[in-house]
Simulated scan of single mutants.
Amino acid sequence: MVSNTSAIASFVEAAPPGELSDVVADIKALTSDDPNLLQSLGPAFEKYNEEQFATVKLPGGSQAVVISSHNSLGDGRYYDVESQRSFAFDHTTQRASAVQSHVLESQHSDLIKSLLKSVSTHAKEHYPSSSVGVYPIENDSLIAIVLVANKYSPNNFWNGRWRSLYLLHPSTGALTGSLHVDVHYYEDGNVRLLTTKPVSASVSASPSAQDVVRQVAAVERKYQEDLNRAFASLSEGAFKGLRRQLPVTRQKVEWEKIAGYRLGQDIGGGRAR
């Protein structure tokens, strides 16, 4: 059972954005002879939720808050700087409960609150359905900036997630971290894009929130431009080279219109709708 649990946990940890509940439903169907198996997957759910920056609305609240290792209080509790609340989080059901007041204790509290406001404005301007968190970490020597944006379109057979993590050294202005993009397309096929970009930049020593957000915006804009160029190159070169000249429809693919095709139906000759 240990090996089976480990294998099933890997399915949880690799769940595409917005599809964890589907994965859980499949696990239940495949392991119906062991109804207690899900209880043993708690660590996998916790790892998934923290790494994917899961979001949850607190009871009585309207704003989704972030779940990550950076705002964990231990024992399944997390805190949110903006609402000044802590809460329990069930990693299996992804629900919050037991909300309490929480006061931020940090020598950088003013910068953290200013960053939270500035990064939230940046996220709302550039990302759909975004959530932001800013937290003191490493014994208050660093500030973690977390941004996650989800866009789900299951009716069109695709889901996507953008994640940004920045670690700011307040005294030196050093800014490190990573950007992650995860997109799953599954109409008459199964294609997934997983890409990560490390970040290493700097702002002025003892930076203002505006200084940091300007650098964040520049880093993310460049990454998006790089992704656009990569997609253009893929459709014009590598992707075209992978396909036969005539697909099963017996009609040539118009490669200049590749972005407008529905992957399975129009290129592969899938079933009509």
Rank of each mutant, 00 (worst) to 15 (best):
A232P: 06
S10A: 15
N228S: 14
T55S: 08
Y79Q: 07
K257H: 10
T93R: 12
G268F: 13
A44S: 02
E256Y: 13
W255T: 10
Q210G: 08
V146Y: 05
T121K: 12
I67Y: 04
A217L: 09
Y223Q: 14
F87W: 04
P17T: 06
S118Q: 07
Q210H: 10
Y79M: 08
S114Y: 05
D266L: 06
V183Q: 08
H126R: 15
E50P: 04
P16G: 03
F45M: 04
Y186M: 11
N190T: 11
W162Q: 06
R161D: 02
F89T: 01
S68R: 00
K124C: 07
S202N: 11
L147Y: 10
K257F: 10
H122C: 03
V24T: 10
P128T: 02
S204P: 03
E46N: 09
D226F: 06
K117P: 02
V134Y: 03
L246T: 06
A14F: 09
G269D: 04
V81P: 00
L38K: 04
A259R: 09
Y186T: 11
S130N: 02
V183L: 12
I143C: 01
T93Y: 09
S6A: 15
V146F: 05
R229W: 10
K240W: 07
L168F: 05
L165H: 14
L37G: 00
F11R: 15
L142T: 04
F89W: 15
V212I: 07
A201C: 09
S235N: 13
F157E: 12
K222Y: 08
A209Y: 02
E256T: 13
